[in-house]
Design a protein around this nucleic acid. Structure first.
Lengths: 229, 229
DNA sequence: CGTCCGGTTGAGCCCGTTCAACGCAGGTGG
DNA sequence: CCACCTGCGTTGAACGGGCTCAACCGGACG
């Protein structure tokens, strides 16, 4: 949802390194308030309507933020990867559910503590503001995707974005989420996602080791399919 | 885009009232830095890619925030009404254009000044954070609209939202924007917008005095068409 | 009076949805 | 060990809502 800037996902890989030269993690400010929790695949970290007494950050694994509609439809707002910070609200309640998509480890910060730091530390407040603003920016970009892009463009965009966010150096990409999750994220149905993946495979842009393990064989072609923005 | 909370649009109607009982306008903090500018219909207040050296607030009239794609498509991010605050970025540049949709008066705040106040006044920082978070929330809601709602539902939602945001007490609603603008906001084409309006008219939910002047005759029916959320 | 621009209406098409069948892997129980 | 079931993904066929293309309408303006 909101990812603290560039270097942060390193924190998922090892212990905090506060070495002088290293750019500091903006969330270090609240690190001391964190408790570490685990969630198994399919379990909720918090639910739509819950009191927003805590906010969180992914350490390892993946999660998804979504809202369930009264008509049964589900909109997946974001997939959350290591480094992502989420659940900090200015209002009383959470307005979406966050559920583990794989076995996931998260840090849990008490809202009170975060707000105390926000009030006292303007640098930290600026970081949070920046993360929220980036979230808004990317939500707007996704609107373009949802209104003007074809099925293949959406799926290509999804794959490239996920590869980018999980910072895979090689071309291997593991999809922790199901086709249904992807469909609900991209505003399509599962069959269309499946067909789009098949076309990308036939076109030589990707290869599939197994259903959930994809190789971005021809990244350039994939970017071509995705199109601008 | 970002609307400072409930009472703010009153500022568009009269001079600042800092009376004790009245809830204060959160943007009072930076009021002294504002300069007042006018823009005629169709002119840009700032453009995509411009240095984000200023941010703004609508006093009267309406504007729209949008992005032009390389393929010629245009996505309208938001319609801006009196009280709306926009253009404050954490990065260097604006990433969308804002253009007057009618004759519009805006207050223009230097970014430097705003950032100085942000650093010194945590209450103000909290207000800005809250506005951005609300913007994100409403962007997510609009995603649902763009993925799962029919043409009629979208248009009904648009009319109700606009009526709500402009706080019309009676059932008259003036559309300052063109059909093309509405279409680019709702992710449809102009013909579909037109047909949806015609159906709402035939269904008795609305009436049209002229092309741009709509009466919400049967609000309940309109809400029924719009559906949940 | 003619032109232009924005909006409306009509006809046909297309892409993604819907409905349905099938494939495949993992789990369970005889 | 195999038969069966269940959940998830893929593929096929037909449908339909919104898009495309095109004509028309009406008010503003020269």
């Amino acid at each position: 949802m909101l990812n603290a800037s560039v270097e942060t996902s390193a924190m998922a890989l090892g212990p905090w390194t506060s070495s002088a030269r290293q750019p500091r993690d903006p969330l270090d400010e609240i690190a001391s308030f964190a408790t570490r929790i685990k969630a198994r695949r399919g379990t909720a970290i918090f639910a739509d309507g819950d009191d927003a007494n805590y906010c969180y950050r992914i350490v390892s694994g993946e999660a998804m933020a979504f809202k369930l509609m009264s008509d049964g439809h589900r909109q997946v707002y974001e997939f959350l990867v290591p480094g992502d910070f989420f659940g900090y609200e200015t209002q009383a309640d959470h307005y979406f559910t966050v559920e583990a998509v794989s076995e996931v480890v998260v840090l849990k910060y008490p809202r009170r503590a975060v707000e105390r730091v926000l009030a006292e530390n303007s640098r930290f407040a600026r970081e949070i503001q920046q993360m929220t603003a980036r979230g808004l920016h990317s939500a707007y970009q996704r609107m373009i995707l949802l209104t003007h892009k074809s099925a293949d463009e959406r799926v290509a965009w999804f794959l490239l974005e996920l590869a980018d966010r999980t910072r895979n150096s090689d071309d291997a990409l593991h999809l922790a989420m199901t086709r249904t999750d992807i469909a609900d994220y991209l505003g399509m149905v599962i069959e269309t996602v499946s067909r789009a993946l098949t076309r990308l495979k036939r076109g030589g842009a990707i290869a599939m080791q197994s259903v959930n393990d994809i190789r971005l064989v021809d990244r350039q072609r994939l970017e071509l399919v995705r199109g601008e923005i």
